[in-house]
Design a protein around this nucleic acid. Structure first.
Ligand SMILES: [Mn+2]
Ligand SMILES: [Mn+2]
Ligand SMILES: [Mn+2]
Ligand SMILES: [Mn+2]
Lengths: 220, 220
DNA sequence: ATTAAAATTTAGACAAACTTAAAAAATATG
DNA sequence: CATATTTTTTAAGTTTGTCTAAATTTTAAT
């Protein structure tokens, strides 16, 4: 038996590990993501270690065990399928669904998530472009790069976002960037590292580095 | 802020009060429904009273306040809309959805439940025939009687069930009783209070009192 | 190599929801 | 009406997840 809180910690370890591209995750990083104290994290790491969901050594940090990774995949699958349902079926916007999925993902039932998957037609990606793990926990790998790595006159199609907070996604809405949008680099300004782009051959916009660093594109 | 557990207690008080047709609900009754100890119930009643969700006096029992009743309605609405979604959209059977809805009902979001209501086409009744409260908490009243009150050669259409446990509903599946089924009383046996019935003018069955007491029918 | 700073753990405490066992109050019975 | 039974409450303790403050370990900087 794994609690909802334990599930969220497992997911936090997985996400940080992916984003930072390193195995071992530190106590403070987890505390920041979980919006809790470092002391609470230490307690939880000890418990998750005892349950063999993570491998943890005092002062060294934590990484997911095989069991923990499979749990993380199950949770990601649920989270992303619920987000897909909320957007594709109920008509929510992509910047409104994260907190809801954060709750729905903890509903206990393998049957439910599989029925949901079927109902949605087995989607491969969620509304933010994140891959949805299949029943075996396998993720679809996609050819993608960070928008900020494109050079002048390169073009890419938006396939995903790195951050999922409402503030960031609402900003993208304002400049007409959504999944599937075509972005052509017009000019990169050295001075403040901002970039002038053309979106869907219609809208011109200047994007700061903070924005370009968090958008995944498929180069065309 | 009301916790999921508090919500379940509120619902228990509401349900018991409805079923037993009396205002004041006792500690032991709640303990039985919540599958917990009487001591835990006393603790919770005190807390709910402090939050003004119920009116409670030591040794006297509890009843819902106006605030508590509105909370109960909101929760019933969520529970029944989720059950409707699970059956009408995801294809679950009516005896598989109660425990799932018991979890889903606690997801915090007014927006979500209203979007769900719209998506389902504003159903008035859930898969068990229970009325779904509307946005204002109003229940559709229906002309119904308990099957066991019908006399010989009377006929009724099944509109609901009083119990929702899997055991009972699965039994109804076995004898082909579902919402909308037509039941004609053929003979009532004095000896063991069982009843011979004709279901949908096709299947003959003998129903015990334990079954007839928990089926709502609309007389025809 | 010391020392300063940052990261992490320990200690002690709290709230929520639960448990069992004992005490008290209410109700039923002869 | 006195007593037995049932119902309810109190008391004491557990688990989960949280907190703050203090101590310790690791890492970074002179
Ligand atoms: Mn979550
Ligand atoms: Mn997502
Ligand atoms: Mn519930
Ligand atoms: Mn129902």
């Amino acid at each position: 038996m794994i609690t909802a809180t334990e599930e969220d910690y497992i997911k936090a370890v997985f996400n940080i590990s992916q984003n930072e591209r390193k195995e071992m995750v530190g106590t403070n990083q987890i505390a920041a993501k979980m919006q809790t104290s470092a002391a609470s994290v230490t307690d939880m790491l000890r418990k998750l270690n005892a349950k063999e969901l993570i491998i943890y050594e005092k002062y060294k940090g934590a990484k997911l065990s095989a069991l923990g990774t499979s749990q993380a995949m199950t949770l990601l699958r649920k989270h992303r399928l619920w987000e897909s349902f909320l957007v594709y079926k109920l008509g929510f916007a992509w910047d409104e669904v994260h907190d809801l999925a954060e709750q729905l993902e903890h509903v206990k039932s393998a049957e439910l998530v599989n029925k949901l998957d079927e109902y949605l037609g087995y989607p491969k990606f969620d509304p933010h472009g994140d891959p949805i793990p299949d029943l075996n926990g396998t993720l679809t790998i996609r050819n993608q790069v960070i928008l900020s790595t494109l050079a002048g006159s390169d073009t890419g199609v938006v396939v995903g976002v790195k951050k999922h907070d409402k503030q960031f996604l609402s900003h993208l809405n304002k400049v007409n960037i959504k999944i599937g949008a075509e972005i052509k680099i017009l000019e990169k300004y050295e001075y403040d590292q901002s970039t002038k782009v053309m979106i869907d051959q219609k809208n011109e916009a200047v994007l700061t580095l903070a924005v370009c660093e968090n958008i995944f594109v498929k180069p065309v």
